[in-house]
Structures are given as structure tokens and as C-alpha cells.
Amino acid sequence: MQKPPLILTNVLLFSVTSLICLLLVPLEAITNGFDSTEIIACIVLFWFSGLSITAGYHRLWAHKAYDAHPLIKVLFAVGGALALQNSILHWTSDHRVHHKHVDDNDRDPYSAGKGFWFSHIGWMLREYQASRYQDYNNCRDLQKDKVVTWQHRHYLMLTLATNIGLPVMLGWLNGDIWGMLLLAGVLRLAVVHHITFFINSLAHMWGKQSYTDKNSARDNGVLALFTFGEGYHNYHHIFEYDYRNGIRWWHFDPTKWLIRGLSFVGLTSNLRRVPEQRIEKARMEMQLKQIQSRVATLPNARILSQRLQHEYELLAEKMSAYYDVKKHRLELKKKQVVEQYERLDLDFKYRELKHAFMLAKSRWLEVHKLQISYT
């Protein structure tokens, strides 16, 4: 089968920036060095452009996980142009198709099933999706967004102004245009490119499937450190409308922290979160599935499976009761209409069910560890 024609602009962009990073940046570092202003500018623009993709393109526009003030939208639109990953409209169209047809080698634009190279960068080097970009009909909601349409119309101008004009201006102010252009311009751009591309490639190949095995997405804390918190990808693919990727307090997710922080000053709102019960249920179902696959080959597999199923059903029952009471308790607290006696009774029931749930969960984990030891 004949391959689609090359996209020469993209081939030249990735080739030239890679060569500059491999040859000219080290040469400049050896001969003239980079001063602190250039290093700081590189780091600031790196975070600005990277977060504009993860918090803006991805969680704000592609998944509508929260709402943002027009000022924040404009900043993300400019930062997205600085990241040079196409317009919001084009990027979102690709990403929504990816989520709808994940791992489908015929319809997923960057299917990991086609290998690391294709999902990382190869899909952008040829006209694989040329016929799809006519009216962006899967992004009609964004076509009503004035910031999105403004950026789409002026995308070329914005990319030139941010990727060339901004480093040149900063270099002129610092007295070294060439050094600033190399470090804060080209090197910063190439690093942001490959770090965010890892979400399409490595995040579908390396890590744990904590919540679902219906797609190739993985949770990986190491990748999260380098992808602005996007490494918790298995969670994201089952709960894509959550504004968080890392849901635990210890999860490194600066994108989540930025969105949450901006909400305190009224610049973001309507932050969407998946109910805790749905998250726990998905995790438990995946744990059961993983354990069952481990014990299936053991001599006493039938007895173990029955025990596992019994413990799972007990845990699910306790969990359901616990979260029902927790929800009711929170509703009553919000309404502030509960009588003191009812509150005390409810608090007692809540603690009792919480204890029962935690006990069942502890037993479940013991069974989980026990089955692992058998293998």
C-alpha cells in the first residue's frame, strides 16, 4: 500500500530544530555559553507553552473539563501558538477523534498500535488525515468560541511572533539575540514538542492499567514529571472530563494545580470532577480482573475465584452503602437543615459504614496480596 505524501513543512520543522539542538546549541554552549537570563527565559517559556497545551488545548478546549476567563483563554491561545502544535481547532479535532477511536489503527490519528515512531511523531509527517479537515464538525462548539476562531485565523502570524519575534526581542534586550534564539527559541520548542508527544506514544506503552484495560493508555508517575501531569493517562482515558489527571495529593500534576489555583481568584470555574465512588468502582473492577487472570492457572483456581468473587461483592456492597451515606451527609450539611439528633445518628452510621468499608477493603487487599504470592 502506497504511503500518503510527506508534509514537507513538518518534516523540515522537526528536522531543522533537531539538528540545531544537536549541533548548534552545544557549540554555542561551549564557545560562548548561556547566561542566567537566557536560561530563565527558556524555563519560563517552556512552562508557559507546555501548560498552554495541557491546561488549555487539552483540558479546557478538547474535554471542556472546566471554564476559563477570556483573559486565560487568550493567554493559552498565545502559549499554544508558542508551542507550535497547530491551532486549537485542529489540535482538538485530532484529540477528540483519538478518544473516540482510541487504538483503532484505521481511525485513531496517532494510534499506539502502529508503534512508538508513528504515535510519537510519524503521524504528523504524512497526509494521513488530510481528508478530515474540511469543516471540523467534531468541534462545532469551539467554532462559537471567539478566542479559538481568532487564534485559528491568525495562527501563522502568532507562531512567527511568539517563536521568532519573542526570542529575538528578549535577546535584543539581553544583548545576545543568537543565544536567546537558540536556547529560549529552538531548544525550548523541541523539548516541549517531544515531551508532549510522549503522551501519545509512551503513555500508551509504559505504565499500569489501574482503571481499565479497554484501551492501551497507562498511568505512569515518571512520565507525569515530564509531561506537566499528563502521565496518569489510564485514568484520563476512562474519566476524560475530569480536570485532574493525578487525583491523589501526591500525584505530580501542575496542570491540575494551575487550574485549581486560578479558580481561587475567579479565573477558572465549573471544575469537573468524577465522583469518588465511580473511581473506586473502576479501580476495584480492574483489581478483580487482574487477580482472576493470575489465579486462573492455579490448581485451586475455582475455589480461589469463588472466594475472590465473594470478597469483591462484599466490598462492593459496603462501598455502595458508605458512599450513599456520605453523599446524604454532605447534602444535609450543605442545606443546613438537619436536626442535631439526626446529625448525630447520621454521623454514627457514617463512621460505622466507613469502618465496615475500610475493613472489607483491607480484607480485599490481603486477598489481592495473597493471590500475587501464589503466582
Score class of each variant (00 low, 15 high):
43 I>V: 08
291 I>T: 08
151 Q>G: 15
344 L>Y: 15
160 L>Y: 07
64 K>I: 09
141 D>C: 15
158 L>Y: 12
184 A>F: 05
173 L>S: 06
229 G>D: 06
180 M>S: 06
167 P>I: 05
63 H>Q: 05
236 H>I: 00
66 Y>K: 01
166 L>K: 08
241 Y>Q: 14
351 R>N: 08
289 K>V: 15
137 N>K: 13
167 P>Y: 13
140 R>V: 06
255 T>K: 04
281 K>V: 13
153 R>Y: 10
223 L>C: 09
109 P>G: 11
353 L>D: 00
331 E>I: 13
40 I>Y: 12
64 K>R: 13
321 A>L: 09
48 F>G: 01
22 L>T: 13
282 A>W: 03
77 A>Y: 01
151 Q>E: 15
175 G>I: 06
62 A>M: 03
43 I>K: 12
12 L>M: 10
160 L>A: 08
280 E>H: 10
243 Y>C: 08
21 C>Q: 02
265 V>H: 07
289 K>M: 10
296 A>F: 11
165 G>M: 03
352 E>D: 09
356 A>C: 04
121 I>Y: 02
333 K>G: 13
32 N>A: 14
310 H>D: 15
301 A>F: 06
67 D>V: 12
215 N>W: 07
215 N>L: 14
155 Y>L: 09
66 Y>V: 01
26 P>H: 04
252 F>E: 00
264 F>Y: 12
154 H>S: 10
117 W>A: 09
353 L>W: 07
237 H>Y: 06
120 H>Y: 06
229 G>R: 11
212 T>E: 12
104 D>Q: 04
191 V>M: 11
149 T>P: 08
80 G>V: 00
357 F>P: 00
150 W>H: 11
188 R>L: 04
259 I>W: 01
178 W>F: 11
232 Y>R: 08
243 Y>M: 07
7 I>S: 13
246 G>P: 00
351 R>V: 05
310 H>R: 15
367 V>R: 01
101 H>F: 09
8 L>D: 07
274 V>T: 10
8 L>W: 12
38 E>F: 01
92 T>L: 02
6 L>V: 07
287 Q>I: 13
306 Q>Y: 11
258 L>T: 06
308 L>Y: 07
223 L>E: 10
236 H>A: 04
118 F>L: 04
138 N>E: 13
170 L>A: 04
106 D>N: 04
125 L>P: 02
316 A>D: 12
81 A>W: 00
328 H>N: 14
3 K>G: 02
301 A>K: 15
53 I>T: 12
373 S>W: 05
368 H>G: 02
58 H>K: 03
21 C>W: 08
243 Y>S: 03
197 F>A: 09
232 Y>P: 07
300 N>Q: 13
93 S>Y: 00
256 K>I: 03
194 H>F: 15
99 H>Y: 02
33 G>A: 03
304 L>H: 09
9 T>C: 10
362 S>F: 05
43 I>G: 03
95 H>Y: 02
106 D>C: 01
261 G>V: 03
224 A>H: 10
219 D>H: 09
181 L>C: 03
92 T>N: 07
38 E>G: 14
212 T>F: 10
268 T>A: 00
302 R>L: 06
30 I>D: 01
302 R>P: 07
323 Y>V: 14
44 V>Q: 04
